[in-house]
Simulated scan of single mutants.
Amino acid sequence: MFGLSELAIILIVLIAVLAAKKLPELARSAGKSARILKAEARAAEAEAEAQEDERRAQAQQPQQPQQAHQPLGEQPDAPRVIRGETVIKGETVTRDAAADGSRTQQQR
């Protein structure tokens, strides 16, 4: 009977004969995929190098104290004010869809 190596050779020849039409297309597709993979790997490497260069540049610059940006006249613990709305303690602002403005309701 046939051994394992003889069966493998017969199987390879049979696949080559039956898939002869598709082999050039498969090889072309594999080549395109390899080129894309190489290009993506180069791009990722270049991006990593750029990030590393940026980190080095930041590390070489002298450290300046970070100051929180606050508009003039505003204190850090002051409540946030949204223009166009007036909210008084104890009142609730509700919007009336039919009216052009907003209405207030007393909540006491």
Score class of each variant (00 low, 15 high):
residue 57 A to R: 12
residue 90 G to V: 00
residue 14 L to P: 03
residue 26 L to E: 03
residue 20 A to M: 04
residue 89 K to C: 01
residue 93 V to D: 02
residue 55 R to W: 06
residue 65 P to R: 11
residue 71 P to M: 02
residue 85 E to K: 14
residue 100 D to G: 13
residue 82 I to C: 01
residue 5 S to E: 11
residue 16 A to S: 07
residue 38 K to L: 11
residue 17 V to G: 03
residue 76 P to L: 09
residue 4 L to A: 07
residue 1 M to Y: 13
residue 105 Q to V: 14
residue 45 E to C: 04
residue 108 R to Q: 11
residue 18 L to C: 07
residue 64 Q to F: 05
residue 13 V to H: 07
residue 8 A to H: 01
residue 69 H to D: 14
residue 32 K to F: 14
residue 55 R to E: 08
residue 77 D to R: 15
residue 50 A to T: 02
residue 103 R to Y: 02
residue 97 A to H: 01
residue 10 I to F: 09
residue 93 V to N: 04
residue 10 I to G: 05
residue 65 P to G: 02
residue 39 A to F: 11
residue 55 R to A: 03
residue 16 A to C: 08
residue 50 A to H: 00
residue 66 Q to K: 12
residue 1 M to K: 14
residue 47 E to M: 14
residue 51 Q to A: 15
residue 19 A to F: 05
residue 27 A to V: 01
residue 3 G to V: 02
residue 8 A to Y: 03
residue 54 E to S: 14
residue 56 R to V: 00
residue 24 P to Q: 01
residue 27 A to N: 07
residue 6 E to Y: 11
residue 37 L to Q: 14
residue 4 L to C: 04
residue 81 V to E: 11
residue 33 S to G: 15
residue 43 A to P: 08
residue 24 P to L: 05
residue 104 T to K: 13
residue 54 E to I: 06
residue 36 I to E: 12
residue 64 Q to K: 10
residue 44 A to P: 00
residue 29 S to V: 01
residue 95 R to E: 08
residue 18 L to Y: 03
residue 12 I to H: 10
